[in-house]
């Protein structure tokens, strides 16, 4: 039901709106990356901004990820608030030194005397047969390493609020948006991501999960596009009288462990849905968060619905087989029942 006062945006538009509002508010904010000005970003998140702010503040760069991410670190330490885009997170291989040895460590190395207020926004996820160097999530890779906050919105409201919070944060924030949620037609459209988004600026706190659906029988924890798979699975389960609670992590670092534990304490069952590789990842961390703390309230061993440990295959049938979806989550719940 759409109310007349609703203002529905795609994630791409809400990201662009957050960037524009923060750039108007603070002269020190600027955006830098590949194909952001003339093209408006491959995923639409800087569309139209160069018209308002010019190409000094919406700056196209050479294909030199180490240099422009490293440059953002220097600018941030020197008082600016840069937002840089790594077009596909898969490209981290060429620039991880700037990300992890420079961006993430300088506050600590300095003993807290410097700030590194910057945002590294990057696209994640597959499902459109772009093969193994353009389709990964690698959430765990980033969340594993201390010194960077990591957020991953699932809808336009959170996308805007998290972007605003990230820009205002004095620490580096990795902002991982899922291509399948951007609302770009060529990637398919996830209606659930297009939600009411207030026009005024606001923040969504980094480090706080959201309950996307209340339930009592099983906790499904996910992030990004996985939240929508989980919500669809919850609808199916509800037809059989099972009420699933869906936790949308929103942030990976800091991880809102309290919300996860409280939900599982209530439901006694846990499924984690993660489009990143299954082993050593977010799903394992969420499960460890629960079982390290308290094991007696679990009615069944936890389950992960995650990407198999294979490089992402190109062929459509193979990739689709690998991706998490609602059917797999429902199947995982049935396995919990028989466990």
């Amino acid at each position: 039901m759409t109310q007349s006062n609703e203002r529905k945006l795609t994630i791409a538009r809400s990201m662009a709106e957050a960037l524009a509002q923060e750039m108007r508010r603070d002269e020190k904010v600027f955006v830098m990356g590949e194909d952001l000005a003339a093209l408006g970003g491959v995923y639409g998140n800087t569309r139209g901004l160069a018209d308002e702010f010019g190409t000094d503040r919406i700056r196209d760069t050479p294909i030199s990820e180490t240099a422009f991410i490293g440059a953002a670190v220097g600018a941030a330490m020197d008082g600016m608030r840069p937002v840089v885009e790594l077009m596909f997170v898969d490209f981290f291989g060429v620039c991880f030194d700037a990300i992890y040895n420079l961006m993430a460590k300088n506050i600590y190395f300095s003993g807290g005397s410097v700030k590194v207020p910057m945002v590294l926004m990057t696209s994640t996820g597959g499902g459109y047969s772009d093969a193994g160097q353009h389709s990964q999530c690698v959430y765990g890779t980033f969340a594993h390493l201390p010194g960077m906050k990591v957020v991953a919105p699932s809808n336009a409201y959170d996308a805007k609020g998290l972007m605003t919070a990230a820009i205002r944060d004095d620490s580096p924030v990795v902002y991982m948006y899922h291509k399948g949620l951007q609302g770009m037609g060529w990637l398919g459209t996830e209606e659930g991501a297009i939600v009411h988004t207030p026009e005024e600026d606001y923040t969504v706190p980094i480090g706080k999960a959201a309950i996307a659906r209340k339930g009592t029988d099983v906790t499904i924890v996910s992030l990004g596009i996985g939240v929508h798979h989980a919500l669809r699975a919850a609808e199916t389960l509800a037809e059989g009288g099972v009420e699933a609670e869906v936790v949308d992590l929103r942030s990976l670092v800091p991880l809102d462990r309290d919300t996860i534990r409280e939900s599982v304490a209530k439901t006694g069952r846990l499924i984690v849905v993660d489009e990143d590789y299954s082993s050593y990842g977010v799903a394992a961390e969420v499960i460890a968060t629960v079982v390290e703390n308290e094991i007696t309230n679990l009615k069944a061993p936890p389950k992960r619905v995650a990407y198999p440990d294979v490089p992402i295959p190109f062929a459509r049938v193979m990739e689709q087989f690998c991706l998490p979806n609602a059917q797999k989550i429902v199947a995982a719940y049935k396995e919990l029942q028989t466990a």
């Binding site: 180490t66 240099a67 422009f68 991410i69 490293g70 440059a71 953002a72 670190v73 220097g74 600018a75 941030a76 330490m77 020197d78 008082g79 600016m80 840069p82 700037a98 420079l102």
Partner: peptide, 10 residues
């Protein structure tokens, strides 16, 4: 090295 490029921009 790249940090000075950003500091120069700044």
């Amino acid at each position: 090295i790249p940090a000075v490029v950003g500091a120069g921009l700044s």
